[in-house]
């Protein structure tokens, strides 16, 4: 479903160059629950951002669903993210003025979907992530774990092709982090949604059905479990 070939990304800041990715190639199949692990600075975020159409690679090829996303215009990128991609962030990134329900519904509001369907899908996913009863709370009135659940619901409510999660548990305690991993895995199994998440937490890696290790912008190991 995702084919990445010889992806290179170099950041230039004045004189200095940082080689964030130095030829990454990999293939991800539909429904995989993939962890990208590696020390800080190894290029995890950079890779996820490029797959998520938030950043451009300098060279290499990347096909998602058979489409060469590097040829997309700005408008097409926004549309692709809107329709096909879900994001989960390390810092949850909920919109503070919107309730849990509204944060999730926002993802559907951007699509051409009837109000009725938006409501039923939003309610259903919020129940699935275990937030029944918290629908009308603002993010500030939710715990970190609950906020991340809202974010997961927001990513999944559009039934995306792919969910990208950059260190989704880094801001949570280990117990809550584990709960979040269980939830993601459960949703992956239930809906068959493809997940790619990054982490340096060995506990989190245990949940992955595929573990890719990055080091200095190169893949050093790739194992399916």
């Amino acid at each position: 479903m995702i084919t990445i070939d010889a992806l290179v990304k170099t950041y230039r800041e004045g004189e200095s160059e940082v080689h964030a990715l130095r030829g990454v190639s990999l293939e991800i199949k539909p429904g995989e629950f993939t962890a990208i692990a590696g020390p800080s600075g190894s290029g995890k975020t950079t890779l996820l951002n490029i797959i998520g159409l938030l950043d451009d690679a300098d060279s290499g090829k990347i096909l998602i669903d058979g489409r060469d996303i590097q040829t997309f215009s700005g408008k097409e990128r926004a549309r692709f993210r809107r329709e096909k991609l879900g994001f989960v962030f390390q810092t949850f990134n909920l919109i503070p003025v919107l309730t849990a329900y509204e944060n999730v519904a926002l993802a559907l509001n951007l699509l051409q979907i009837s109000a009725k369907e938006i409501e039923s899908r939003t309610i259903a996913i919020l129940h699935e992530v275990g937030l029944k009863g918290a629908e009308n709370r603002l993010p500030s009135k939710l715990s970190g774990g609950q906020q991340q659940r809202v974010a997961i619901a927001r990513a999944l409510v559009k039934r995306p092709l792919l969910v990208l999660a950059d260190e989704p548990t880094a801001n949570l305690d280990s117990v809550t982090g584990e709960e979040i991993m269980k939830l993601m895995l459960e949703l992956n199994k239930k809906h068959g949604t493809t997940f790619i998440f990054s982490t340096h937490d060995p506990m989190v890696m245990l949940y992955a059905t595929r573990l890719i290790k990055l080091h200095d912008g190169l893949i050093v190991s790739d194992e399916r479990r």
Binding site: L54, A78, R79, R81, R82, F87, N93, I95, L110
Partner: peptide
């Protein structure tokens, strides 16, 4: 950060 989030969600 919100602008980024909305952008990532696909808002133009």
């Amino acid at each position: 950060k919100e602008i980024g989030t909305l952008g990532a969600l696909g808002m133009e």
